[in-house]
Write a protein that binds this DNA or RNA. Sequence first.
DNA 1: GTTGCTCGTAACGAATTTTTAACGTCGGCA
DNA 2: TGCCGACGTTAAAAATTCGTTACGAGCAAC
Lengths: 228, 228
Amino acid sequence: MRILIIEDNPDIAANLGDYLDEKGHTIDFAGDGITGLHLAVVNEFDAIVLDLALPGMDGLNVCRKLRDEAGKDTPVLMLTARDRLEDKLAGFETGADDYLVKPFALQEVEVRLDALFRRGRRKTSRELRVGDLQYNLSALTVNRAGMDIELNPIGLKLLRCLMESSPNVVSRAELEKEVWGEEMPDSDSLRVHIHSLRSMIDKPFQSKMIQTRHGIGYRLVESDAISA
Amino acid sequence: MRILIIEDNPDIAANLGDYLDEKGHTIDFAGDGITGLHLAVVNEFDAIVLDLALPGMDGLNVCRKLRDEAGKDTPVLMLTARDRLEDKLAGFETGADDYLVKPFALQEVEVRLDALFRRGRRKTSRELRVGDLQYNLSALTVNRAGMDIELNPIGLKLLRCLMESSPNVVSRAELEKEVWGEEMPDSDSLRVHIHSLRSMIDKPFQSKMIQTRHGIGYRLVESDAISA
DNA sequence: GTTGCTCGTAACGAATTTTTAACGTCGGCA
DNA sequence: TGCCGACGTTAAAAATTCGTTACGAGCAAC
């Protein structure tokens, strides 16, 4: 874990730095706000420990500029002697992630930094991709070659099933179960929905990504090259 | 923001719940550890406030089981009277994200919860913005193109949820849970509230930021350009 | 009490999706 | 080649979902 300590008191900085170094982290120091902000913007730290009383530039301003002007979302742990409520609120207001009042235990700093780091490692939005076709699972949107495509609920389910299995064949039975579960419609409406899905996915692009395997099912392939 | 409060003291729970509700959040309660763990596992909360002294199951165990057995990474803010260092370390050890010692200020709880939530969504601001629409989370005010807009509590919650997810689609189930938590109304009043929200957000500006995805949900977009 | 506001409920037409039905086409097989 | 089942296509019916309006209960301020 790479940590930046912005603190003008050399004793505190050295003390904290040594402790975190012992714990296996990599530490960088800044003795004033301007240097600290610069380092924070230029480098990629996993977390920043920020003192509020700083020469050059106040800690609150460092945090605000980091967030608003540099657009960095590096986790920030504020460290200060000010324990009044409004100070804390002001700290969080500027975009801090945690706020610890001096005097503090070194161990507490470390576990709080750990907690920030854990939370920072989060999975991003899931997305399926086959060729130039993209399916954003969290936004429930589909786009192909930069063009957004709005699909029905059933169209989305079918496409998802096909994309997850691509380039393998999916049997009609599987597709039907995916869409309707156990209670399927009386007639064979899957054909109709495949047709309308094709009209959205393939027709505007004059391609044939959705292929039919006669008597077996359907499959989705990147190119429309036909392989027997 | 959907929050679960696990706290056996009814006074504290009600006090905190009322405060957070006023701030535009949706609150669910659990009076003991078992119920709390169950709710936390089954539902998707944005954050959990967890008391450590609980009947049924200790708060530390609740957190541990939530993380290890259920695999949930919902942000957890521990709330307790124990202020010894080893208690704090034990709290973070079980996977807590923050640790606040009683007595605490209600405002501090809120800003800390908000910081946890922001971190989860990689946001660093107390203000939401989509196009020319702005939502100040601190003042609970909305304005568009310089015009202030006064919204109902429900309208605020809906808009907040839509803005946080923008431009992704939010299912009606998600919106309903965001507004009413577990106790939903019998009828489908979401449509009515969407309508009144539109009359405030879109109608005066002759735009269509709030779009309907038939059979899927709603989404908020910057422009009303329709992409096919 | 009165006023004003919010909220839940109900109702109904409009819009969209889904199902059904009908018919033409294609592919494998004797 | 000719048959038959599986598939593609289209149109219309049926079902679902949505937008809108209206009304009354509940509640707080006055």
